[in-house]
């Protein structure tokens, strides 16, 4: 408190003096103390290991012996002589490009349906949100296996109309798409956010548009989408990051192999195999950092593109 009354030169002297830190601690110590649990967690459990993995990505490390510094060899190997890196990247990109737009479209459609002011809305909202709570769990991945197995529920239904379906999850032509469907089914959290966004759009806009004879499609394109675009943007960024990080469903459904024929070899699954299957921690760390960079690039592109499509009211 006292510092505020000091003249400028005096304050400068304070800044230079060694007791400045002590003074700052006296002022903010309690605040930092309360922050300590989070700060400790962040530095020790997040930042520390992350930096360690950055170092490890330049080493050959098999977990049991000391890491050996090998420069950028891991990164060079990735781009020059690792077909599995390319394969897993392709699978992951395909998954992101398919599942994110489909999931957002589905979430928006359900949110608009729920926004009609129906009876018992909270109940429906909870029911539709449920899959998202369960979605990343092992149990659902197991259930998915049962649904899409050769004698699973999906094929029993198809058999009713005389179609003999393939074994969806174990056929390399379809296996990835069953995982996309699983992801779309977990539309709950973007749906809730869309619903909140829809609530923010003033109803008089629609009333005015109706009076002017605008069709529902036109109203959707000219009113709903532009006013909802900041929410779409938010959901897009979050869901893209989530999709890049997808792991559990592929791990469970393929039994950790990413098979058949690497058709569900998600990038994170490949990373896991390298790290814990083959004990190549250095290489796996390098893979992890490449994923960080790729996610950062995608996020940056999303942000840069906002000026073309995200509508700001102000």
């Amino acid at each position: 408190m006292a510092e505020q009354t000091l003249s400028r030169p005096a304050a400068a002297r304070m800044r230079a003096s060694p007791s400045r830190l002590g003074a700052a601690m006296r002022r903010n110590g309690a605040g930092y103390l309360f922050l300590a649990p989070w700060l400790l967690g962040f530095f020790l459990l997040t930042l520390g290991p992350a930096l360690a993995s950055l170092y490890l990505s330049f080493t050959d490390f098999d977990l049991l012996t000391t890491p050996e510094f090998i420069g950028a060899q891991n990164y060079v190997r990735m781009v020059t002589q690792d077909p599995k890196f390319a394969a897993s990247m392709k699978v992951t990109l395909l998954y992101v490009l398919l599942s994110v737009p489909l999931k957002l479209a589905f979430a928006l459609a359900v949110a608009m349906l729920l926004n009609r002011g129906m009876q018992g809305l909270p109940v429906y909202r909870a029911i539709f949100y449920l899959p998202s709570l369960l979605g990343t769990s092992v149990a659902i991945a197991v259930l998915w296996r049962q649904l899409f197995a050769s004698d699973g529920l999906v094929n029993s239904l198809l058999a009713q109309i005389g179609i003999e379906g393939p074994s969806w999850i174990s056929n390399p032509n379809y296996s990835l798409y069953t995982l996309v469907v699983l992801s779309v089914w977990q539309f709950g959290s973007p749906m809730i956010i869309f619903l909140a966004g829809l609530r923010q759009i003033p109803t008089d806009m629609y009333e005015a548009a109706s009076l002017d004879g605008a069709s529902p499609t036109r109203q959707f394109l000219r009113i709903t989408l532009p006013l909802l675009s900041p929410v779409v943007f938010f959901n897009l960024v979050i869901q893209t990051i989530e999709a890049f990080k997808a792991f559990t469903p592929a791990f469970i459904i393929s039994g950790g192999s990413g098979g058949p024929i690497n058709s569900t070899l998600f990038y994170t699954l490949y990373l896991y195999q390298e790290a814990f299957g083959y004990f190549r921690m250095g290489y796996a760390s390098a893979l992890a950092w490449v994923l960080v960079i790729i996610i950062a690039i995608f996020t940056a592109i999303s942000f840069l593109s906002t000026k073309y499509w995200v509508h700001h009211d102000d």
């Binding site: 074994s167 174990s170 390399p172 039994g255 098979g259 058949p260």
Partner: peptide
């Protein structure tokens, strides 16, 4: 066939 064998995850259950 291949798609039946691919369900096998190297455990007796599968």
């Amino acid at each position: 066939p291949a798609d039946v064998q691919a369900l096998y995850k190297f455990s007796p259950e599968t």
